[in-house]
Nucleic acid binder design. Structure first.
Lengths: 346, 346
DNA sequence: ATGAAAGCGCTAACAA
DNA sequence: TTGTTAGCGCTTTCAT
């Protein structure tokens, strides 16, 4: 007969003995909605308190097939938009009784596999992919194991996966209309990571908007969503004689746009918006700082988060329900980094 | 006899049957360091792959008494320092095979209790408290249940709890020396949350340093570590005639210091550092932006994170080992927001 | 409303 | 090295 394992901690049996009731009574007291008398509840709670008992949710999950764990995967927090998003996601999930396991993309090749593996092994009830990296294989892996996935801030072509995203296409168009109406004629674009849907849609919409205004893109560079890479990109576009240089630029994220403004003003001695108008995307906290006053597209974080959580819970509660996509509108926030067209009202 | 529960997912028995081996053989294949033959490993892995099997770590934890889960609690991510810290903590823990459950302080009264409860119910192997809120009761609750705790970026008087922090006292002194040597005579301080050890130590050190230079604090205001509250604080100190206004200010965090610079320059029309020298604490990414160029105390995030993780793992692996405190040195980063004394070299 | 008993998926002791 | 077996701490039937 196997040797008894060293006992660790307090379990429901200990509490039951202490209270002089059955073990299942203890379980019921800690199960919301179970049928227990007042007196039973009191006795058990008292014993539990005396022993410092906390029910083991990991054990419970074995039976209920619910861990109340949600996995969140994300590339990194360096972009100011993501800390807000993550914090609110975690809080919102908690409002519904879920706890969050956090994962960041890692450098090595099979980082994604590792993460999915952890999700599956911990039997998370659902996954939110805020990651910017490609994720089709993840989604398949999770959904095949019955774990619903919601893409956060990116839409995949595949309609079989739930996703929430702002209307990047319309956002791009709005900026184009705005800059064109402002009288700009040499309008440039600085891209984010080119393998990401948000980037593609923002650019596509922007080009469409320019075309509608009878313009086309004057120039383009790539910043890959990082400040480090956006600086050289900005120099490339703007370190030129006045008449060869863009008079306006749409930058695919605020995080990059602030970096661009720094290069323009402090390295190249250009005035914003007198020499160049700059428009960003996201409306991160620093965009509104007096030092920048960046005109940008506001993403309603709360709305995106709420939609994402709702979409996920929907599929957790009714696994048979079809995945849905939610698209949230963006709005242009007028500040001082871009010339405002006369009579502009959106 | 209880009715059999609906079977969900693939378990080790299914894999065992499929591979024609015992269930424990399957378990061993997925247990690092267990003794299995090559052929056995191959057969099992093949069956597992065929069935899409992933071992259930929650079930495993019942036996091993190890969840490989670490709880991280934190107030919020709005302060730029914390996203960096959290990201690196999560990554570092993962390097050692641990996964992270994230918790944010909530508004209601028993938020802390709720969090501790969740930590205990999920049987986390350890807890990192990066939270700025008071936490003595948390620590007791966790440690009483045998869950080791490390305080991140704050030191408690109690030497019975592991903690990592920069040398806030010496940091404060350094800034005082620096500003005094720069010829400033009306030196002010803007505090963070007054119930927090980092704040207290920074201020104490600062006052000590001023005293050593034959000065005393000219004035003081409280910003509570938020941008919203630091703006009025800055106005209070600086919206005065030139000779009644501080000629230098030490702000307890960069996050606030950037807000102070904005108020000084854009609301009050003061020049930094010509009219006022500003020094911060943390060295967040935006502090080095050309728009601010904030002179500040650099916190070596990687070092703090590594120390915190090491302290935690130490206590997880040898529960009997004594808690330790680690203190990491800070260094002054000279930029342009404060006048640099002639011949200053640290 | 309560208790007895079965079993969730796994690890680890033991025997072979 | 492998299989057998006993639980880990819990939830949930079922019977009372």
């Amino acid at each position: 007969m196997p040797q008894r394992l060293l006992k660790i901690g307090v379990n429901s049996i200990d509490v039951a003995k202490h209270a002089g009731v059955s073990q299942s009574a203890v379980s019921r007291v800690f199960t919301p909605g179970a049928s227990v008398s007042e007196s039973m509840r009191d006795r058990v709670m008292q014993a539990a308190a005396a022993l410092g008992y906390q029910p083991n949710r990991l054990a419970g999950s074995l039976i209920t097939h619910r861990s109340n764990l949600i996995g969140i995967a994300i590339a990194f927090l360096a972009n100011d938009f993501y800390p807000m998003a993550v914090e609110r996601l975690v809080r919102r999930l908690r409002d519904f009784g879920y706890h969050t396991m956090m994962f960041f993309d890692r450098d090595h090749a099979n980082s994604a596999d590792e993460t999915v593996e952890a999700f599956l092994q911990y039997r998370v009830d659902g996954v939110i992919l805020a990651s910017v990296t490609l994720s089709s294989s993840w989604v398949t892996a999770c959904e095949r194991s019955g774990v619903p996935v919601v893409l956060f801030n990116r839409i995949q072509d595949d309609p079989h996966v739930s996703a929430v995203s702002v209307d990047n296409l319309e956002g791009g168009r709005t900026v184009a209309r705005f800059l064109a109406a402002g009288g700009h004629r040499r309008i440039a674009y600085i891209a984010g990571r080119e393998d990401v849907s948000t980037q593609r849609d923002r650019e596509t919409g922007f080009r469409q908007g320019l075309a509608a205004a009878g313009l086309s893109l004057f120039d383009r560079a790539v910043g890959n969503y990082t400040v480090e890479e956006v600086r050289p990109a900005a120099r490339l576009l703007f370190d030129r004689p006045a008449d060869e240089r863009p008079d306006a630029v749409f930058v695919a994220s605020d995080h990059m746009a602030l970096g661009v403004m720094d290069v323009l003003r402090f390295e190249l001695g250009l005035r914003v918006p007198a020499d160049v108008s700059v428009v960003g995307f996201d409306d991160v906290p620093h965009a509104s700082a007096p030092s920048y006053r960046l005109t940008t597209l506001h993403q309603p974080v709360d709305r995106i988060v709420n939609d994402a959580v709702q979409l996920l819970l929907e599929r957790i509660e009714r696994p048979a329900s079809a995945p849905r996509q939610a698209r949230v509108p963006v709005s242009l926030v007028l500040r001082e980094s871009a010339r405002i067209p006369h009579g502009w009202c959106g």
